[in-house]
């Protein structure tokens, strides 16, 4: 049976992981799958308005993504929302610890969400972690 609901947990701040998460989330979202993206830890700062998307590479492939001008991960996450109705939910704990205010986040990012609410959303979904 095809997966109809996916939760993508993004905690890494590395270019390769952010890129793979954004690719999987955006293509799933525009393919009729309900997608919820939960942002926490090192992934969160990239979603502050105006933040650069030049995440550090884990290896040589991350540098190739830049050199070859692959679609940047922030654009893909935004398209997941705009074209596929995905939800991007920032972790409330991560925002609190980092001192990030909700109104400083990109407009395509949704409301801060705690783990209890996320676990409810993920209860009947596949969960992919990056």
């Amino acid at each position: 049976m095809a997966v109809q609901k996916i939760c993508v947990v993004v905690v890494s701040g590395s270019r390769e992981r952010l890129q793979m998460a954004a690719m999987a989330a955006s293509v799933a979202a525009v393919s009729g799958i309900e997608v919820t993206i939960f942002l926490s830890m090192n992934a969160v700062p990239y979603f502050i308005k105006g933040a650069a998307d030049d995440a550090p590479s884990e290896g040589s492939f991350g540098d190739l993504l830049v050199k070859k001008k692959a679609p940047d991960f922030k654009t893909l996450f935004r398209q997941a929302v705009e074209l596929g109705d995905a939800k991007i939910l920032p972790c409330s704990m991560a925002l609190d610890i980092a001192g990030i205010e909700t109104d400083t986040l990109e407009p395509f990012v949704g409301e801060p969400t705690g783990l209890a609410a996320f676990l409810t959303a993920a209860a009947d979904a596949q969960v992919w972690t990056f």
Binding site: M23, V27, V30, K69, A70, P71, Q79, L83, G84
Partner: peptide, 17 residues
């Protein structure tokens, strides 16, 4: 042209909508 997966697909969907 010049874009990589899933760029062309997302571009298609943007226009398709």
């Amino acid at each position: 042209r010049g874009s990589f997966c899933p760029g062309p697909l997302m571009e298609l969907i943007g226009v398709l909508k």
